[in-house]
Amino acid sequence: MSLKENPTLEHLAGIFKQKIIPQLQEYFFDDWAKINLVFFNNGMIVEDKEINISGLFPANIEQDMHYSEQKKIWKIETEAFKTIDAFTKILGSKS
């Protein structure tokens, strides 16, 4: 990848946001929980607790579908891309 010519943290973050994460989205059919597992829960992808799923559907439909019990909303945590620790955590434990 182009990281060899431009070895900066900002460039690495751009590669993850523009290439790696979209590829994982496609591979895992937008299952963000699995993407988070691949990243060893490093904080780049977090559950978005600010969005209330039950507010998206009428109450009777949402209860019938049990949608809010099954689906979490995820977001990319941009602050995590600013430290090298988040990237090194993807490598897993060193033990």
Rank of each mutant, 00 (worst) to 15 (best):
I90D: 06
Q25N: 10
K34G: 01
F87Q: 06
I20A: 09
I51G: 05
Q70T: 13
Y27L: 11
M1C: 09
I51H: 07
I61C: 02
K71P: 00
N42P: 02
L56R: 00
L3E: 14
S93C: 01
F28G: 04
G43W: 01
K49W: 00
E50S: 14
K4Y: 08
E79I: 14
K19N: 14
M65S: 10
F16Q: 02
E50Y: 05
K71L: 11
I20W: 08
A33E: 13
L9S: 04
S93W: 08
K34C: 09
Q70D: 07
S93V: 07
F28L: 06
E79Y: 03
F87P: 05
A13C: 08
F29W: 06
E77Y: 09
P7W: 01
K72C: 04
L12D: 04
Y67H: 06
E77S: 09
F39V: 01
N41K: 11
V38L: 14
I84D: 08
F28N: 09
A86R: 01
E69T: 07
K49M: 11
K75D: 04
I76F: 03
K72Q: 12
M44N: 00
F81W: 10
D31Q: 12
N60P: 00
L12M: 13
Q63P: 01
E62D: 08
N36H: 03
E50L: 08
K71Q: 13
L3F: 11
I15V: 15
D64I: 08
K17V: 05
N52S: 13
I20H: 05
E10I: 11
L91N: 11
G55N: 15
D48E: 12
W32Y: 14
Y67S: 01
N42S: 13
I90F: 02
F28T: 05
E77H: 13
K34S: 10
F87A: 03
F28V: 03
G43Y: 01
I84Q: 07
Y27W: 08
L9Q: 07
H66N: 12
A59D: 08
K17I: 12
F87K: 11
T78W: 02
N52G: 02
K19L: 12
T8L: 03
E69L: 06
G55R: 12
T88Y: 11
A86H: 02
K19Q: 15
K82Y: 02
I61V: 14
L3Q: 10
K89H: 07
N6Q: 10
T88K: 05
K71F: 14
F40D: 14
K19Y: 09
N42L: 06
F87N: 05
N52V: 15
L3S: 07
I84V: 14
K89T: 13
T78S: 14
I51Y: 03
D30G: 02
K49V: 11
T8D: 06
N52K: 12
S93R: 07
K17F: 05
F28P: 03
K94A: 04
N52F: 08
F16P: 03
D48Q: 04
V46T: 13
W32M: 15
E79K: 14
K19T: 15
L12Y: 07
